[in-house]
């Protein structure tokens, strides 16, 4: 499977989806102008990955900030991950960022995936 490796910008997150190395990460800031368009390749990649996933899929969210339009797409990403056996989510938040911690805990209530909460 091809590797997705997008560098982060001031309004889009860094995205790394690397099946051979087992690295799956979305990090940084997410406030793109067209959120659906931005996340489309990610959702399509996950759809293909679902057909033949690794035994374990440790997925890292290390977001500094995301807007409300992105939150909808993050839930779409999580809903895809929900269907992949062996998925665990590592939800990072800055140690004094309670809002980001709460956002993660709300996502964890909306999908049936194991969440681990970590600080950075």
């Amino acid at each position: 499977m091809e590797i997705i490796n997008l560098e982060g910008t001031e309004d889009t997150p860094k995205i790394l989806l690397n099946k051979p190395n087992g690295i799956f990460e979305i990090s940084g800031r997410s406030l793109p102008e067209d959120t659906a368009e931005f996340y489309k390749p990610v959702l399509e990649w996950l759809e293909r990955y679902t057909a033949d996933p690794n035994p374990e899929t440790p997925f890292v969210f290390k977001l500094e900030y995301f807007n409300t339009a992105s939150s909808k797409l993050i839930l779409d990403v999580l809903s895809k991950l929900e269907r992949i056996k062996g998925t665990t989510i590592s939800w990072y938040h800055h140690e004094d960022d309670e809002d980001m911690e709460e956002a993660g805990s709300e996502f964890s209530e909306l999908v049936e995936v194991e969440f681990e909460f970590k600080t950075y």
């Binding site: 102008e33 067209d34 959120t35 659906a36 409300t68 339009a69 939150s71 909808k72 839930l75 709300e106 209530e109 909306l110």
Partner: peptide
Amino acid sequence: KALYKDIIKNGDLSEKGGAGLGFVD
């Protein structure tokens, strides 16, 4: 919080790409 979760779960993005969550947030 309940309204936020309801909209994010049941709402779709508008054609303009808004999630309808801005004011709630």
